[in-house]
Design a protein around this nucleic acid. Sequence first.
RNA 1: GCGGGUGUAGCUUAGUGGUAAAGCUCCAGCCUUCCAAGCUGGCUAUGAGGGUUCGAUUCCCUUCACCCGCUCCA
Length: 524
Amino acid sequence: MSDENMMKDLVSLCKRRGFVFPASDIYGGINGFWDYGPLGVELKNNLRDLWWKWMVLCPPLGPEGTEYAGAPVSMVGLDSSIIQNPKTWEASGHVAGFTDPMVDCRETKLRYRADHLVVYSYLDSTFLFAFNKETSLEDVEKKIHKFAKKRGSENIRQIFELGDFTKVIISDELKDRKYNYHSLDKIVAPDTLEPGTLTEPRQFNLMLDTYPGVIRDEAHKAYLRPETAQGIFLNFKNVLDSSRVKIPFGIAQIGKAFRNEVTPRNFIYRSREFEQMEMEWFCHPSEAKLWRDFWFVERQKFWTAIGLAGENLQMRDHDKDELSHYAKAGYGTADIEYRFPFTAPGFGELEGIAHRCDFDLTQHQKISGQKLEYFDQERNERYIPHVIEPAAGLTRGVLALLAEAYTLDPNRPSGVYLNFHPAVAPKKAAILPLTAKEDHVPAAQKLYMALREDFAVDLDIKQNIGKRYARQDEIGTPYCFTIDDQTNADGTVTARERNTMAQERVSMDRAGEYLREKIKPAKG
RNA sequence: GCGGGUGUAGCUUAGUGGUAAAGCUCCAGCCUUCCAAGCUGGCUAUGAGGGUUCGAUUCCCUUCACCCGCUCCA
């Protein structure tokens, strides 16, 4: 099956079985938003809880061969507000950095950032020429001559730079002159010789905004957080003053984030509302490299342990030119990438491990005026710690788990099953009386009541056993316990394993123990 | 936002300017002592809004959503 078709099938399976629905489906949906159904929320919660366990409840032991080896690293959790004082986002660089006016070319279908374009013209010309700022003067002249030659009559005298695209198009300063907003039809786009192909510049603010309180004006504008990380930086001092942590330590947070994506795409991969699992690791600047490498390895272990093993998982260092504004100076960003069906044969980002340096704390200290330095008693040194940030997409993780689990099997009735690692499977087991007759049902109900105390389990009585196995295969339930005549005789049930369809007899009393053993994530 | 494509039941697909068809799912029942999602029955659809027409799911316009490309990121 092609990857595109596989993705289609996965999306419809998700809807059919209750993993993911289009948000506000009955109104025709809304671009970039998705709802998690009864099974989807179990899957997502499982991934969330496993991350929390790995990072906060049972964090890894410190790196081998260092003073931190042998003891668990220091980690605390946090749940900060989605809406923060808007100064937060000025300090973080999101207000400036996420506001990119864009211009489209109708002719070439290319898109440009308006602030990256500069406009040239020449004496007595009626035409203007937009170029990328990096374009050399030589290339500018070459193109303008080519344009003139094509037009025949144009006589070129003294080419000059008119200014930034945005200024030329919309500034009042130039409004009264012959170049103004209405000159768009006179502008020749960078990659064509045809004038008038550019659209008006459009402002894209990648943050969604809202207005808390009663007054709806600019002064009262606030933003829905575009990342959970800043909430951690805002609480750096609070955590330090309240929880007896000392550097190096981490603060972890899971929560929703919002981005007004230009183009939400690829199911839940890029949506406007999504969930992040982020941890900010605060350390001495001299140990940034050590911890960056440490977390990179630890995070790989996590994804591998819950089932994303093999060649669909890839580790990659960012090239210098794709680094975020905060990561340029440090040891860079490394990605854990997954081969999603829609990126194949390429990969898509699942988690980024970034060295954010002291960018965020420095910024917040500067803008807020609050001291965010740390006094290190052991070193007898005052400094702003450096930050290593493993930032994972929870909802992207859900998609990766779904894609990885999706397995075609023409030899079974369902034709497809979800090969979830038991640790993430939305249902750990189904309890099935072999028949709906009297002597099988009570035992099944008893087992169900016992198991549901500790596990997400299903009790399914209706219809024949083959149908029920097929249904459980399709939602990825790793085990089925079936009650038959022998159960009443010796207290055993059959345990049927999803992938192999093999069965073994297990004492009903041991069913819980059996499950607990099976659903542990692989050792890191 | 731009360009291209798609839109018929919960899902996957037929089909037609004149009563909209099927398989699976789901529900009710039957049959079932381990793969028999086998049997019977039932619910459910032309994305939304306009227009042309005696009559539109079909033709036209607008809009919305999804898919592919540009772009962006967790």
